[in-house]
Design a protein around this nucleic acid. Structure first.
Lengths: 136, 136
DNA sequence: ATTAATGCAAACACTTTGCAATGGA
DNA sequence: TCCATTGCAAAGTGTTTGCATTAAT
C-alpha cells in the first residue's frame, strides 16, 4: 500500500498496526471495526487514535473516506478511482473494478470545476438475498 | 410533488409544511435545515417531528435520502433516479440531469442483485472556486 | 531535547426513542 | 372516540477535541 518511510509522520506501533490492517483490505471497514480488530493486540488503543490516524492518512491521500454508508464513514486503502457495490441489507461493500468514464455537459457542470466522480451501485448480496427469500 | 390525499397518513400542519417546503426544492436540505426554515412559521415544531416525517416519507417512497454528504443525511423530494454534483468546500449539492446507463458485468456483480446506482460527482462550485483563488 | 502522538474523558453533532398530551380522522 | 402524531427530553451513535503523559525522531 505504501512505503512507510516516505510517509513523513511518526511511525508508532498503533499506526503501524492500522496501516497493516488496512493494507490490501477490501472490506471497507469503519473506524470502529478497525479499532475492534486491533484491540486484541493493542488492548489499550483508543478509538480516538484510530480516528486521528485515519484523518491523517486521508489528508496525506493514503486512504479514501467513503460516504456510501449513511450511518458511518467507511475507509478504503485503495486510493485509485474505483466504484462500489453495497448490499442495502447488511451494508457490505465490495469493489467494482469496471471503470466508467463519465463526464458532464456544460449545463450539468453549472460552472463547477469537476474533480472526480464515484459510482455507487446498491443491491442485495447473495446471503441477504437468501435470507429475504426465507422470509417471503 | 405528490397528491396529499393519496398519501395515507394524517395530514398535520407540520407535515403539510414539510411537504410544502420540500415540493420542488432542489437544495437537498438536511433535517436541520428544514427545521430551521420552518421554525419561523412553526416555532414549536420539534426537530424530532422533522426526522420522523422524513422517515415516514422515505418509507412511502416520497423522498430520497442521500448519503453523499458524509456528515449528515440530505433529503431530496425528487425520487426519480438522477445524479448529483457536490462542492467539496461548501457541500452544496446540485442535480445532474444527464442519465448514465451503467451496468455491471458478472464478475463485478458477484452474485448481488443490483437494484440501482447513483453517480456522485464532486468538485468546486463557482463561489468556492473564487474564494480558493483569493486565498492562493 | 523536541515535538508529535497517545489514551482517556468530555464534548459535539446527528439521529432516534419513550412517553404523556394533543388533535386529525 | 380512537389512534397516530406531536413536542419535549433523554438516550443513542458516530466523531472530534482538550490535555496531561508518553514516546518517536
Amino acid at each position: 500500500m505504501m512505503k512507510y518511510k516516505e510517509i513523513g509522520f511518526k511511525l508508532t506501533p498503533q499506526r503501524l498496526a492500522i496501516l497493516d490492517y488496512l493494507e490490501g483490505n477490501t472490506a471497507h471497514p469503519s473506524a470502529e471495526e478497525i479499532d475492534r480488530a486491533l484491540s486484541e493486540k493493542f488492548p489499550t488503543m483508543s478509538l480516538a487514535t484510530v480516528y486521528n490516524t485515519l484523518e491523517t492518512l486521508r489528508q496525506k491521500g493514503l486512504v479514501q473516506e467513503l460516504s456510501i454508508d449513511p450511518d458511518k464513514k467507511r475507509f478504503d486503502p485503495n486510493i485509485r478511482p474505483h466504484n462500489h457495490l453495497m448490499c442495502i441489507d447488511c451494508r457490505r461493500i465490495i469493489d467494482v473494478h469496471t471503470n466508467f468514464d463519465l463526464s458532464l455537459n456544460d449545463r450539468d457542470k453549472a460552472n463547477f470545476i469537476v474533480l472526480g466522480h464515484h459510482v455507487e451501485f446498491y443491491g442485495r448480496c447473495p446471503e441477504c438475498r437468501k435470507a429475504a427469500e426465507g422470509r417471503a
